[in-house]
Structures are given as structure tokens and as C-alpha cells.
């Protein structure tokens, strides 16, 4: 890190200009809770850090029942959890944001950074996938929208070019009868990395019949992904015990875990099913309260 330089642009355009100076090996700095450790260990390299926290557009945090959620790329997890409308409308995303690290980390770490860091076990990523979040990416010539589910390609890798900037994450307003939830398994009560994480969004109608569902699995594959068969199996059911068991079975089947120090592949596969049942049941319960 010895020849590192630092800059703090105050607009997206200024940031993009700096990110375009490829000879200076630039990298975006938001909360820094992953990046600074990676730079020190040599896992990632940069000679110019572009601190995006002084860009007003990237500090936007807005949620309402009509227009949905706008979450700027520099907003720390703690602010998401303290936002009354975000808590009310997206309890699953807030659950995920509040599970990341300690108070100290949550005050710095951003949801966008959690996504862009590309860890298979990132807590907010399955929550974003369950909500069908989109990312607004500013590049040198234009802005584009991509689904959060398409952003990460492999562990630590994303579709973002060096001169791309994730400006904002957007989520639609929850439909009537629709709600989300997120849970993870860790071996202790706090401060650990998910063995398995599951996010779900479930929509029910006035009869309690499921009309739409999304289930996303984390830490059971090289990247978080949607368990589409498991979600589809819920549609048309009352999300009763039999439907939960079937969705859990299909989620276990979709999981492609590896064995590592946090758990064996067999254990993770089993837990993916258990958490799917619990998370879907919770999302459906919350959805019924929104009828």
C-alpha cells in the first residue's frame, strides 16, 4: 500500500473520471471494511482510492410504499437499519444488514459494498436477490441497470469494469400481501460468517394463497443465487406445512455447497432446506399482515 493515493470526489462524474485513469490502478472505497484489509494483505491491489462517501447522490436513502427503496452506494448498513420506512417495508433486507459484523462494522460497511465484494456468504446479497433489486451502474459513457442477481459472477468477481460505479440499488415497493425475510445460520449468536443464508420474498392474496415467491440462497454455491424451482413450488399453495417442506426439499436440491471449516456440504444442504422453510414461513406471515 506504499504508493497509494487518495481522492474524495463530490460527484459521480468526477469519480468516473478518476476511475478512468487506469494507469493509476484506481479502486472504489466506500465503507472500506473489506477493501482496506484486502489491500493490506495483498489480496487486492490499488494505487488510487476513490472515496465515494462525499458524493451526495451516493448517500441517498429513501423508502416509501409508493416508490420503493433507493439505497445509495455509500450508505452504511447502520443507516438502513435506523430508517423507519426501510424497516417497515423491507424487514428482510434490514435483518440481513443488521447481521453484518459488529456495531463498528455496521457503521461503515455498505450494502453496495457487501454486494460488490462478491463473497458467496454476503448476508445482504440473498436479501437483495429475493427483492429482485436492481443496480444503477454509472460507466464512462452511460448509465445502465442490471439485476442484483447478475452483478456477482464468481467469488470476489463482478460484472463491473474498473471504471464502473454502483451508484444506487433500487427495489420496487412491496406489492399488497408481499413481504421479505432473511435468516442465516452461524455457529454462535453474533459476529460470524454465514454457513448458509436464505432470503425470501413471498406474496399472498386475500385467501392466503401464494401468488409469487422468490427464494435466494447464500453460502451454498460460488455466488448467491435464486432457487427458482423451490420458489415456483409455493405458487398456488397456502404456504402450509406441506408446501414449506416441498420448498425446503427443492432448495436443498438446488444448493451446491462445498465443505470447509464452517460446515460440510451435506450439512449445508440440509440447513438450506431448514432455513428455507423458516424464512418462507416468516415472509408469508408478514405478507398476510399486509393484505
Amino acid at each position: 500500500m506504499h504508493e497509494l493515493q487518495y481522492s474524495s470526489p463530490t460527484s459521480v462524474d468526477e469519480a468516473l473520471e478518476m476511475l478512468g485513469e487506469s494507469s493509476r490502478d484506481p479502486r472504489v472505497l466506500a465503507g472500506g471494511t473489506d477493501l482496506l484489509i484486502q489491500l493490506r494483505s495483498g489480496a487486492r491491489h490499488a494505487r488510487l482510492l476513490v472515496d465515494v462517501k462525499r458524493i451526495p447522490e451516493m448517500n441517498v436513502l429513501h423508502a416509501d410504499a409508493r416508490t420503493g427503496l433507493r439505497l445509495g452506494g455509500a450508505v452504511p448498513c447502520a443507516l438502513v437499519g435506523e430508517h423507519p420506512a426501510a424497516r417497515e417495508l423491507y424487514p428482510g433486507l434490514v435483518e440481513a444488514a443488521e447481521l453484518i459484523g459488529s456495531t463498528q462494522i455496521q457503521n461503515r460497511a455498505t450494502v453496495a459494498g457487501n454486494l460488490c465484494n462478491g463473497s458467496p456468504a454476503a448476508d445482504t446479497t440473498p436479501a437483495l436477490l429475493a427483492l429482485d433489486a436492481t443496480c444503477t451502474i454509472a460507466g464512462p459513457s452511460r448509465r445502465r441497470e442490471i439485476a442484483a442477481s447478475e452483478l456477482v459472477t464468481a467469488p470476489g468477481r463482478t460484472v463491473l469494469a474498473a471504471n464502473d460505479l454502483l451508484v444506487e440499488i433500487r427495489v420496487a415497493a412491496p406489492a399488497r400481501g408481499s413481504a421479505d425475510a432473511y435468516q442465516r445460520l452461524i455457529p454462535r449468536s453474533e459476529m460470524d460468517i454465514a454457513v448458509v443464508g436464505v432470503g425470501a420474498s413471498v406474496t399472498v392474496d386475500a385467501d392466503g394463497t401464494c401468488t409469487a415467491a422468490r427464494i435466494a440462497l447464500g453460502a451454498v454455491g460460488p455466488r448467491a443465487f435464486l432457487a427458482e424451482d423451490a420458489a415456483a413450488s409455493l405458487v398456488g399453495t397456502k404456504v402450509d406445512e406441506a408446501a414449506l417442506v416441498e420448498a425446503g426439499r427443492l432448495a436443498s436440491e438446488a444448493a451446491q455447497p462445498i465443505s470447509d471449516k464452517r460446515g460440510t456440504a451435506e450439512y449445508r444442504r440440509e440447513v438450506a432446506g431448514v432455513l428455507t422453510r423458516r424464512v418462507v414461513a416468516e415472509a408469508a406471515r408478514r405478507g398476510r399482515e399486509r393484505i
Binding site: S8, L29, G32, L36, K53, R108
Partner: peptide, 17 residues
Amino acid sequence: LDDRVVCSCLVLAAEVE
């Protein structure tokens, strides 16, 4: 740092202007 507790090892000095 501005009313929020943070780990100063994960903050660059350059950020505190």
C-alpha cells in the same frame, strides 16, 4: 467518528477531513 463508533484501523486518516 461524528457520533458513530468505528474501528479506527479500518478508517483511513485521509477520510477525516
